[in-house]
């Protein structure tokens, strides 16, 4: 699948922003410390909004995007839109409380956290519900999106608390590290799944026999078309291997090491967040670039 930058930016930035919303809510319960909230909520607001705005760049007719809130009964994309907009209400209420009334309204922060988690789940389900892209059609997809949001939000929250207070909360460090390692386990399993052959072959796509008996002789047209560009994207195998290592190293290994070794050194904590975001961009790029669509069976692939 074509890795569209607008969608990669959206899922990484909004996902991390939503994760941060969850952590700010949890931290606010433990210690209603408005110094962190004063930086955290505006930061999360900007990350989420920037991501959502970026996602509209992916649309070919964005003026009709208002219709996208109508089909929440069947469409995960519509559900995501509805929840994303709805979650802005408690986020804005929290911002109002923190900056105007100088209080942290816990009810609002909890609602924001629930909305944030549900929105990220919907993002994962958009991809998970597409059976034609076998790599995506697994519960690991929504789980990976949720864990990436929690881990990313945690790394950013650690950077915030260390910067403000000189040290991060132990629970925050422990849970974030667990989320990061869980995410690593899921991604490794994910890549293992990707290597196994799928259910659809050029044989089932044409009904003309076993996959080994059928091969494409001629494409419909000699040039590329929208289908081959959008869904026939291929990434070189050797690059994929290197990029996977880069994704895991930047997104998981480096932040964990920085946090374990230098939890108290507040100059390094923002580096861990930066490293996570860079790694997450690589991971998300691979999420699209490595996924194969069954339409490729009509354009020369024998397995999808």
């Amino acid at each position: 699948m074509k890795p569209a930058f607008s969608v990669i930016f959206f899922t990484v930035m909004s996902g991390t922003g939503y994760g941060l919303i969850v952590w700010l809510s949890a931290l606010g319960m433990i210690d209603p410390d408005r110094a962190v909230a004063r930086i955290g909520y505006p930061l999360a607001f900007v990350m989420i909004s920037a991501g959502l705005l970026s996602s509209t760049l992916h649309l070919k007719s964005p003026a009709r995007a208002r219709h996208a809130l109508s089909q929440w009964r069947t469409s995960w994309l519509s559900r995501e839109g509805v929840l994303a907009l709805a979650t802005f209400a408690p986020i804005c209420l929290t911002l109002w409380g923190v900056f105007v009334n100088d209080v942290l309204w816990h009810a609002a922060t909890v609602l924001a956290a629930i909305g944030a988690l549900l929105t990220v789940y919907c993002t994962g389900m958009i991809y998970q519900s597409i059976r034609a892209v076998r790599a995506w059609a697994t519960p690991l997809t929504s789980l990976a999106y949720l864990l990436a949001a929690l881990a990313g939000g945690g790394v950013v929250a650690m950077a915030l608390t260390t910067t403000v207070h000189g040290a991060a909360d132990l629970v925050l460090i422990a849970v974030t590290a667990l989320a990061l390692l869980g995410l690593m386990a899921i991604k490794i399993q994910w890549w293992r799944n990707l290597a196994s052959p799928g259910i659809s072959t050029v044989g089932t796509a044409t009904g003309l026999g076993d996959a080994s008996d059928v091969s494409l002789f001629e494409r419909p047209h000699v040039t590329e078309n929208w289908l081959t560009e959008e869904m026939g994207f291929r990434v070189a195998r050797k690059h994929a291997g290197r990029l996977r290592q880069m994704a895991l190293g930047l997104m998981i290994v480096l932040p964990v090491l920085i946090q374990l070794m230098a939890g108290g050194i507040h100059l390094l904590a923002p580096l861990a967040a930066l490293s996570f975001l860079l790694g997450a961009f690589v991971e998300r790029w691979l999420f699209f670039a490595e996924a194969r669509h069954s339409v490729s069976l009509y354009y020369g692939a024998s397995h999808a």
């Binding site: 992916h58 649309l59 597409i130 796509a205 929208w226």
Partner: peptide
């Protein structure tokens, strides 16, 4: 009149039966 050109339907179709008009 309602299509916003997100392309998700074309992803969902296993057969490549839908194409975005450039």
């Amino acid at each position: 009149d309602k299509c916003m050109g997100c392309g998700l339907c074309a992803w969902a179709c296993p057969y490549g039966a839908r194409e975005m008009d450039a």
